[in-house]
Simulated scan of single mutants.
Amino acid sequence: MYKTLFYLLSFFLFVNCSPDSKPDTITSENMYFPPVSGNNWETKSINDLGWKQDAVLPLLDYLELKHSKSFMILVNGRIVMENYFNGHSATTNWYWGSAGKTLTATLTGITEQEGFININNKVSDYIGTGWTSETLDKENLINCKHLLTMTSGIEDIANGDDVSPSKLTYKADAGTRWAYHNVYVKLQDVIAQATGQSWSNYFNSKLRDKIGMNGVWLPLDNNIVYFSTTRSMARFGLLMLNKGKWENTTILNEAFFNSATATSQNINLGYGYLWWLNGKSSYHLPQSQLQFSGNVIPNGPNDMFMALGKNDQKIYVIPSKKMVVIRMGDAADNVNLTLSDFDAVLWQKINALYQ
């Protein structure tokens, strides 16, 4: 049956499950990293972990029902589950959607640690003035950190995802309003200008190739998004689980990693540097100025941070469980995604593996 691949708007306000009702099994093994080249990757069985084999099939059935194309769980870097559905395979590329925002955040940190940029500097220091249609004094309020934290003050609804200057209009002073917007991609222009390299070449040399990912940036729905295999997405999740280090090599410095995966501003507590954060007292959703109480995913682990993309592309990183979870596929629900409970039910079924 199984042939071993948003908007984030798939959240919910009606789940009351405790995220950590029972301690999970955490192995004492060292963290494992697959070789940068080749397809070898160590595995660990459900039984070896002391997890519940009878919880596997309900999880897989749910994933297939919800239009998934792939699913992976890593523990300590080793593959515990790797499943493909609906004609997808380990060699098929699929889009990350907005989950790829975290790749841009990571490259921004790498660019800063190499001395090319300072995230507290104005965006216009790197790409020149006139990159928005705001007045010069308002445009010059926007620094690179505002793009990382979704606090640029750019109009987020009326002009859609278009990032041409004429569509980047003023809504509020930078730093005073959180709003999910595609303007973060201007960081890619900042990096290209500051390094003197193309965005894709710098990305490939400083991140992709160093951890053995495959993949390419391609146009999709008027955006440039990342496409890769599921294992490549898992490699990135593993890098983040290890705080920016691949084995003993620092790819992203830990100070930037810590800032990226912590609350980045005082408006949306559930948001870091283009990463979503669980376990905070409140959060905002895209295209909304409402504040909601509690966790983004109530029955997910409190320390989980997440890359979340259109049509339910997911990277969940859970430090306390030494775990990375990947889901790729089509949208889980073909209804109003704002009210989708996919994350809630998925985590209920993942929790059943070890609780």
Score class of each variant (00 low, 15 high):
L5N: 05
Y7F: 11
C17K: 14
P23K: 14
T25W: 03
I26Q: 07
I26S: 07
T27L: 14
S28H: 12
S28G: 13
V36Y: 03
N39S: 15
N40T: 15
E42W: 02
D48L: 05
V56N: 04
P58M: 08
P58C: 07
L59F: 09
L59Q: 06
L60D: 01
L63R: 03
L65K: 14
K69I: 01
M72V: 09
M72N: 03
N76Y: 01
N83M: 08
G87K: 02
H88A: 13
G100W: 04
G109F: 02
I110E: 10
V123K: 02
I127L: 03
T135P: 00
L136E: 11
T151C: 14
T151V: 13
S152Y: 07
A158K: 15
S164W: 11
S164Q: 15
Y170S: 12
T176W: 08
T176L: 10
R177F: 13
R177D: 12
Y184G: 05
V190Q: 00
V190F: 00
I191E: 00
G196Q: 01
Q197I: 06
W199R: 00
W199M: 01
Y202N: 02
Y202C: 02
F203P: 00
S205K: 08
D209T: 06
V216R: 02
D221H: 07
F227G: 01
S228N: 09
T230C: 11
T230S: 15
R231E: 05
S232I: 04
S232Q: 07
A234W: 01
G237T: 08
L239R: 01
N242M: 05
W246S: 05
E247M: 09
N253G: 03
F257Q: 03
S259T: 12
S259L: 14
A262L: 10
T263N: 10
S264L: 04
L269Q: 15
G272I: 11
Y273P: 06
W276Y: 14
L277G: 13
N278M: 02
G279W: 08
Q291V: 15
G294E: 08
I297H: 00
P298L: 08
N302G: 12
D303M: 06
K310P: 04
S320L: 11
K321P: 02
K322G: 10
V324Y: 11
L337P: 15
T338N: 15
F342C: 06
D343A: 12
D343K: 10
V345D: 12
K349E: 02
K349Q: 05
I350C: 09
N351K: 14
A352D: 15
Q355L: 13
